[in-house]
Write a protein that binds this DNA or RNA. Structure first.
Lengths: 118, 118
DNA sequence: CGGCATCCTTAATGATACTG
DNA sequence: CAGTATCATTAAGGATGCCG
């Protein structure tokens, strides 16, 4: 985490959960603890590199917790922290907004194999 | 607007308002109609190129309306559409989340000159 | 004032191979 | 399984100049 300076709290928030993947990772974690492999299946088109990178940054921000089990083969779980959980209701509303937007604009959802949810 | 295909409504939503600038532009438009120059002052570090680009994409998505007055010198106003207005309460909650996050992590806000708000 | 067009630089992401 | 490292590619963004 680089400590930038922020002009307002909104900027801070978008800096933490913005970017192409972060909110989607949080969305994938909204229900349960998830393992690396599960996340890769849940999030369409994300590469291992991007997934790891985003998870590390979210962990650094205190939004996601990484739990390592010292076993072989390796087992690592990811879960939302308290702070991260507080974001979920907001993301839900964004989801609902998208649903209404899709309705109004005749946009169809086409899930490929393992969609995130709903 | 390129018509992609989406796996879920959440993905659709983040595709529309995601990216480095879009949500900030919406945030800057949350109160009143704004002109190009005002937006540039309100949004820290945005270039004219990026501002125009983001506004065009938001306009294409039906989130922002562009109103051109045929006068000299040119006058152009930007305002949220109904669809765009529905996003504001959600962005407000994101703002509030950021505020609490800042409190918990001892992050200070340093406005430079013309901050967006609050 | 509010752009657009062009060129150029930098940052983000992808592909592939390898490891404990 | 859950990564890391390296290299190649692509996309995002900045600088400058021009225009109605």
């Amino acid at each position: 985490m680089e400590s930038r300076s922020y002009n307002c709290f909104f900027q801070l928030a978008t800096d933490i959960i913005g970017g192409k993947w972060k909110s989607m990772v949080l969305w994938a974690l909204k229900k349960d603890v998830k393992r690396n492999g599960e996340l890769k299946k849940l999030i369409p088109n994300i590469s291992q590199k991007m997934l790891t990178q985003q998870l590390r940054e979210l962990e650094g921000a205190g939004i996601v917790e990484r739990i390592v089990y010292p076993v072989i083969p390796p087992k690592v779980e990811y879960k939302l922290t308290k702070s991260g959980e507080k974001l979920i209701p907001i993301l839900e509303q964004l989801h609902d907004w998208g649903k209404e937007y899709a309705k109004n604009h005749d946009i169809k959802i086409v899930k490929d194999a393992n969609c995130i949810i709903e």
